[in-house]
Design a protein around this nucleic acid. Sequence first.
DNA 1: CTTGTGTTTAGTTATATGCGCATATATGGA
DNA 2: TCCATATATGCGCATATAACTAAACACAAG
Lengths: 110, 110
Amino acid sequence: MKVRPLSDEALELVSRRFAVLAEPMRLRLLQALFDGEKNVNTLVGLTGGTQANISRHLQTLTEAHLLKRRKEGLQVFYAIADPTIFRLCELVCGSLEKVHAARAEVFRSG
Amino acid sequence: MKVRPLSDEALELVSRRFAVLAEPMRLRLLQALFDGEKNVNTLVGLTGGTQANISRHLQTLTEAHLLKRRKEGLQVFYAIADPTIFRLCELVCGSLEKVHAARAEVFRSG
DNA sequence: CTTGTGTTTAGTTATATGCGCATATATGGA
DNA sequence: TCCATATATGCGCATATAACTAAACACAAG
């Protein structure tokens, strides 16, 4: 498979998506939504952040098209909108596992 | 496959890896290395950054175990050390394509 | 209209980091 | 040893952004 270099604009977009995923609290929110949609207050309880902060992160994730928003009366429900998140996290976790296993080896045998 | 929630420490590591990928210049460097190892000056020429800046970014990528370093005389050659990068970029690019195609649809038919 | 609940936004502060400049280190050659 | 080349690093500036507080907004009930 041939990979043609991305334009500056495309690189900017890609880097921005990675930046959205580069905050532990946002990853925790995504994790909390892995098993289905939840409203804001539930997410506040699950993640242990303040409501204002959670709301902001949810906005960031939604603007990045990673989450979708559904309003129902007083409450707002968020859900994962982009299933590639699952694979992304799997890939990174797997890679990090390898890295750290290898590092452990160094100390064991080296 | 059941996904068990990651610890705070693990989330920190994952977010850090995403952060490393969240800079256009670093993505450009990775792209430039897709077809094999290159030395620093070559990368400076390909990316159009300053030597100091490129060196810094290469250090960041190497510390994240995404690149490996090989010294040969005066020159230092860098190469991709973590092949998951390819899939990561594919995934993100594919996802972004979809998002923007959908957005284009909105203007076409909506 | 007033009150209460759930959610968002504004303003501020603290921290992180990309970049440019100058300089330092490392290696090879005269 | 002295110089040239390739790479790395220290420092300061500018900017981005996460978190906190307080306030505003949206909506339902009475």
